[in-house]
């Protein structure tokens, strides 16, 4: 009974604790410690499963190790090898193309849908939201396998194209040397668009309606309203959506692994797939760790750029 009451008091008058010089000095100290206690479970899990593996991988990237024999220190050799591998540059190029499909198009599409759907209460909104968000709920492996069927030589995509008289362009989309990467990217667009739309729709609700009223009074049409009110109001959401989807594109692995496994002829390899191959088929844990570190640094770099570009400047 006593504890909650003290907490309430402390919360309602935070400066008091600092100003009350005569008070027992041990109390704030104890409170500080109890704060640490509260975050301990989460911090322990985070340290054990996020921070420690990161440090371990960074450390392993300086060793030659096959998983069994004692690791051997090789300095920067793993990194040198990685940058000497032409396959890596192809994979990085592919993942940048995927950024367009996983991030740029879904954000644009999500904004478009938001502009269409927001501000007007429509019947069936909940239905649209569920339909668009559904891909986020499905495991990517299931998504990949389903799309492999849709894209196959006699799959639904080709049947639909034939039905509308486009039989001439049908092909096994994921097996086509020229278009496999784009076909793969469109799966990502399908998965990510719903997420972006959900983020933007919830963000739009917190924009002050009086801003729209003012814009209408000033004679702004729907397009003008979107660029003058909606888009600036969604700056934070756009930033978050861009970060999440860019990370998904750069670190993609599962979708590629189950649909094309990097094929045809290495047209859809991504860095994540190369990390997997190095570690699990070639037994080169050191090289895989080095590539993973490079990938992580690239992701952090790009995310920083996105955050900087979308930052509010006064």
């Amino acid at each position: 009974m006593a504890d909650p009451r003290t907490t309430v008091v402390a919360r309602s008058s935070p400066p008091a604790a600092g100003l009350r010089r005569g008070g027992a000095p041990s109390r704030p100290g104890r409170r500080r410690w109890s704060g640490w206690l509260y975050i301990l479970p989460a911090a322990a899990v985070y340290l054990a499963f996020a921070i420690w593996p990161t440090i371990a991988a960074a450390r392993l990237s300086f060793f030659e190790w096959n998983g069994i024999l004692p690791p051997r220190w090789v300095g920067l050799d793993n990194y040198r090898e990685i940058f000497d591998t032409p396959a890596l540059y192809g994979a990085v190029g592919h993942s940048l193309v995927l950024v367009v499909f996983f991030s740029v198009i879904p954000v644009a599409f999500g904004l478009f849908l938001t502009a269409m759907l927001s501000g007007r209460v429509r019947r069936g909104m909940a239905f649209f939201r569920v339909v668009f968000f559904l891909p986020q709920v499905l495991p990517l492996v299931a998504v990949g396998i389903t799309w492999r069927w849709l894209y196959s030589d006699d799959g639904v995509v080709n049947e639909a194209l034939t039905a509308v008289g486009l039989g001439g362009i049908t092909r096994a989309w994921l097996g086509d040397y020229g278009v496999a990467l784009f076909a793969l990217g469109l799966i990502g667009t399908w998965v990510m668009s719903g997420l972006c739309m959900m983020l933007f729709l919830s963000g739009v609700q917190k924009i002050d309606p009086s801003l729209y009223e003012a814009a209408v009074l000033d004679g702004a049409g729907a397009v003008r309203q979107f660029f003058a009110v909606t888009l600036p109001g969604l700056r934070g959401e756009v930033s978050i959506a861009a970060v999440i989807t860019t990370i998904a594109a750069l670190a993609s692995f599962d979708l590629v692994y189950v649909t094309t496994n990097g094929g045809p002829a290495n047209q859809t390899t991504v860095p994540g797939l190369l990390v997997y191959r190095l570690a699990f088929t070639q037994g080169d844990i050191g090289g895989a760790s080095a590539l993973a570190v490079v990938l992580a640094v690239t992701v952090i770099g790009l995310v920083t750029v996105i955050r900087w570009l979308t930052k509010e400047r006064s």
Binding site: D153, A172, L174, G175, D176, A180, A265
Partner: peptide, 11 residues
């Protein structure tokens, strides 16, 4: 055919 590149083992 080129579509073989999209054909898995079970397929």
């Amino acid at each position: 055919p080129e579509s073989s590149n999209a054909v898995g083992y079970a397929d």
